[in-house]
Amino acid sequence: MSYDNKDKGMTLIVKTITGLTVGLILLYGLYITLHGHISPGGGFAGGVIVAISFIHLMLAFGREEALRILPKTFISVLESVGALLFLGIAILGFMGGYFFLDWFSKGKPFELFSAGSIIFSNIAIALKVGLGLFGIFLVLILLKFTSKDE
């Protein structure tokens, strides 16, 4: 990451602090996502936090930096993949007889590997929501820039 580039992004202080915290925010988002079935949170909340970590990066370092890490086509492709994954998990329920049926092994309550397919659904939702939200943010930013250029 370019800490020295003064033209793009905010000041060095913001950049340094962001560089230190952004990884933690991302990790926290992943934690919320993966523990969605045993504690408050879940795919949506986790996805929003993941999106916030990228938005943070973008605000501090300028949009080129964020777009270098997550290109635009990559975002829209992964977003669709997240949605299809969720749909796929729902369709897998047909193997147990019903749409959306959770037929995986349930495991023991209050452990990480429990609650069947919910953890996979949460991951799919987090993918969809996180990248979707970041995509919305990105699109609004890009819209603003085109109107300013004219």
Partner: peptide, 24 residues
């Protein structure tokens, strides 16, 4: 409410996008 918030997010994002375009 969580579902409803997600729907609200979609609507708000769309309407903000439209508002920016209208300004343009």
């Amino acid at each position: 409410v969580l579902t409803s918030i997600v729907i609200g997010l979609a609507t708000t994002a769309l309407v903000v996008g439209i508002a920016i375009r209208i300004y343009e």
